[in-house]
Each structure stands twice: as structure tokens, then as C-alpha cells.
Design a protein around this nucleic acid. Structure first.
Ligand code: SF4
Ligand code: SF4
Lengths: 150, 150
DNA sequence: TCAAAAGATGTATTTATAATACCCCTATTA
DNA sequence: TAATAGGGGTATTATAAATACATCTTTTGA
């Protein structure tokens, strides 16, 4: 009953990018350094985010990445849906459940899951990174100390 | 993002017991046969349920088990809470997240989780096994065919 | 034109944890 | 006292997540 690290790593990356000035590019190297996650790992996550359009990845020298759309248009539910492999709270088929037919529990679990997701669906990336928020402040500091450390 | 099989197996056992006449005992063997789960596995789950008081396990010849209280008093949220090892939707400490301080996402995820759990908290075992329900009918049939097959 | 910087991608390995199995114990009662 | 039924520790296996490795292509400026 928890999200995978991939999902949360995706959020970390997105939050970081959301803290950037629009159109300024961050590199994989930077995200890797700032969050202390391996390059390969970050790559996988960024690629998934890029394919879904949440980030724009620009190849080549002086390439990098930025948000694929406005932070206000990146819905948190969509990010979870993209990153999580399994969203069903229970698998009634394997092994097959003898009481699956008409099982009320099944209905309740899916309702509960929907409440979880729809709560996230009420927010976007921009809600995580409001001006004057602590997170925004921290991100800017992390970015600066990376730039300085180069 | 899903419950463990243990949790659902616990529900299967509880639902089965709830379908029994009050004070009639079911055996591990019966549950094992009906749901096609190994004895050892069922044992582990029943023991956990017994320790929490959700079922009464009676040892010795002609022993068995029954619900530890009225079906209407067994809250679904409590069952999930008991069986799930990890309920936190995200672990911000391992590996430590650099933006954990003041992270809004963290708050939102825990709120979402609470919505999930509190939805289940509105129901009890008796809601899963209403008179004339399909589930109750199926359970009785399973019990009878087990009794006949002995 | 080619070297450096940056992302792309497929595959393999490792690790964590859930799931299952094994073994022997204790309690109860005809 | 034998048969039946649950108790509980430990070991193994399976599955999926997490991570690592290797090798690519793209872009650009010296
Ligand atoms: S008890 Fe209900 S929810 Fe659980 S596996 Fe069976 S059908 Fe699905
Ligand atoms: S981004 Fe927020 S929710 Fe995710 S690990 Fe960091 S603090 Fe926790």
C-alpha cells in the first residue's frame, strides 16, 4: 500500500523543474547531483515523463530538459497514473477468488482508490511550488549550490 | 499501489466466517479447501486476525474458529490497518529527500491515503454479507459442498 | 569535421519484500 | 492416549522494484 519510488522520483524531478525559470534548461547531471539518484535511474524516469509530454527533453550539446507545459497544467493524478504500474488495489483474478461474483469489498476498495486518486486530481504541479513557498526557496538554493559547485 | 494478498486473504477468511451461523466453527482445513490457499498460509493470517481479536480460534479436537465479535463491529479500515505492513504512501526518508521540508506533495499524499482509509472505515464486515446478497449465497454453497465432499 | 556534451534505449543484475513451505509444538477431548 | 485442531519459528522461493551496464544518437561549436 504505497507508491513506488519511481513515482515519487518523478515528482521530485517535476517539482525541481517547476522551480526553474520558464525555458531555462536543467540537465540530467544536475538532477542526479541535486537528488543524489543515479544517472541511469533519472534517465528512465525523465524518458517516461518526456514520452508523456510532462517534460521536454532537448538532445545535444547545451541540451537539457524543462517542463513540457505550464506547471498549472500538470495534474498530479496524471503523474501517478503514468508512473504506477499497478493501480488496482486488489487482484481478484490471481489466484481466482471464489466469492468474486457480487463482492461488495471489491467495489468498496475501488471506490476508496478513486477517492485517493481524485484527491490528487484536484491539484497540479503549481500547487506544490507556490511563490514564497518553502519548497521553492529550497529548490532555488539547491540549484544555486549546484551551479556554484561546478 | 496495491494491498498485499495477505490483506485480501484476511478479508476472504473474515467474509467466509461472517457467512456462518453464529458460534458455528469453521476449521483451517475448511478455509484452506474452500479458498485453495495453503494451510500454512491460512494459519499465519488467522493467527494475526486472532491476536487482534477479529476471530476466536479454539484449539483442540472439535476446535476451529469463528468471528471474534459481531460482523457489524468489525470495521474494514481496522482490518487493512492490521494486515498492511506499510501504510505510508511515500517514504521521504529513505533515501532522504532534499525538499522534504515543507513539501506540499507529502501532505496531499497523506490526505489522499486518509480518504482511502476513511472510506473503508465507513463499512463493516456486515456490509459485505447482507442477507439475500450474492456473496452470502455463494459462501453457503461453498460451505455445503465442502461438507458434502468430506 | 570531429570532439564534447547531452539525452535515448535495451538489457542485465541486484535487492527487497511478499509469498509460500517446512518442521515440530501445544491444546483439547473422546 | 490417540486423534484432531490450532500455534509459531524459520527457511525458502517468487516477484517486482530498484539499480547498474553498455552502447547508442543528436546537436553544436571550435
Ligand atoms: S474477497 Fe472480494 S475483493 Fe477480495 S479477492 Fe475476493 S472478490 Fe476480490
Ligand atoms: S518530494 Fe515530497 S513527498 Fe516526495 S519524497 Fe520529497 S518530501 Fe516526500
Amino acid at each position: 500500500m504505497k507508491l513506488t519510488k519511481h513515482t515519487d522520483y518523478a515528482f521530485r524531478v517535476l517539482i525541481y523543474l517547476a522551480g526553474y525559470e520558464k525555458d531555462k534548461l536543467a540537465t540530467i547531471k544536475e538532477v542526479t547531483a541535486v537528488f543524489d539518484i543515479s544517472r541511469d535511474h533519472v534517465m528512465k524516469i525523465v524518458q517516461k515523463l518526456a514520452k508523456a509530454g510532462f517534460v521536454d527533453a532537448i538532445r545535444g550539446k547545451f541540451g537539457g530538459m524543462k517542463l513540457g507545459s505550464n506547471a498549472a497544467d500538470i495534474n498530479l493524478r496524471d503523474v501517478v497514473t503514468l508512473m504506477e504500474v499497478t493501480l488496482a488495489p486488489v487482484n481478484c483474478e490471481e489466484p481466482p477468488c471464489r466469492i468474486a461474483q457480487g463482492c461488495v469489498l471489491q467495489t468498496l476498495l475501488f471506490e476508496a482508490q478513486e477517492l485517493f486518486l481524485s484527491h490528487l486530481g484536484q491539484y497540479t504541479l503549481s500547487d506544490l511550488i507556490k511563490p514564497e513557498s518553502e519548497t521553492l526557496y529550497i529548490i532555488k538554493a539547491l540549484g544555486e549550490s549546484f551551479a556554484a559547485g561546478e
